[in-house]
Computed example of a mutant assay.
Amino acid sequence: MKANAVSNSAWTTKKPALMSASWLLINQQLHEHDTWDGEAIQKRGKDLLDKALKLWFGPSL
């Protein structure tokens, strides 16, 4: 099943489709999530921001 075909499905249906359709490491990290709710999304967003700030430095002041 294609990932976009399950876009409005429950996470238990969507997760296997996403994992099989995406080889991106950033998406493969979703294996660790049994639930995908607002709290999980907020935490992942914060984690991604923290990683981005470590990789890409802003301009020197």
Rank of each mutant, 00 (worst) to 15 (best):
L30I: 04
K54A: 09
Q42D: 11
D37S: 14
S60T: 14
D37C: 07
N4F: 01
Q28A: 03
P16H: 06
S22Y: 11
I41M: 08
M1G: 10
R44C: 08
G38N: 09
F57H: 13
K2F: 13
N8H: 07
A10F: 09
M1V: 03
E39W: 10
L24E: 10
L30Y: 05
D34A: 13
S9D: 15
S7T: 05
D34E: 15
K14Y: 12
W23T: 15
I41F: 07
Q42K: 14
W56Q: 10
D34S: 14
T12W: 01
G38P: 10
N8F: 08
R44N: 06
K2V: 07
W11E: 03
D50P: 01
M1P: 04
L61P: 15
A52C: 13
S9Q: 13
A17R: 10
A52K: 09
A5F: 03
K14P: 02
S9A: 15
R44F: 02
E39H: 13
G58N: 11
W36T: 06
A3R: 12
W23I: 08
W56F: 12
L53N: 14
W23V: 12
N4R: 02
T35Y: 06
L61T: 12
T12E: 14
K54L: 11
K14T: 11
K2T: 09
N27Y: 13
M19Y: 08
A3G: 11
D37N: 15
S9P: 08
Q42L: 10
G58K: 05
W11P: 04
H33L: 09
W11N: 02
S9I: 00
W11V: 09
P16Y: 09
L49I: 07
I26G: 08
N27I: 04
N27W: 03
A3M: 12
K51Q: 10
K51Y: 06
L61Y: 14
L48R: 04
K46V: 06
Q28N: 11
L25Q: 12
P16W: 05
L18K: 00
V6W: 08
E39Q: 14
S9F: 09
A10Y: 09
K14Q: 13
K46H: 05
A21H: 08
Q29T: 08
A5W: 01
H33E: 05
D47G: 09
H31G: 05
R44A: 10
L55M: 12
L25E: 13
R44I: 03
T35R: 06
K51F: 06
A10P: 08
D47A: 15
A21R: 04
K43G: 07
L24Q: 14
A3L: 15
L55P: 00
K14F: 14
P59I: 12
D47Q: 14
S22M: 15
N8W: 04
H33I: 03
K14I: 01
K54W: 00
E39D: 13
W56T: 08
N8E: 09
P59G: 10
L48G: 01
S22V: 14
K51T: 07
A10H: 15
P16A: 10
A21V: 00
L48E: 05
R44L: 13
G38Y: 08
A3E: 04
D47W: 10
G45E: 00
L61G: 12
S20F: 04
K46F: 00
I41A: 10
S7G: 07
D37Q: 15
T12P: 01
L24K: 11
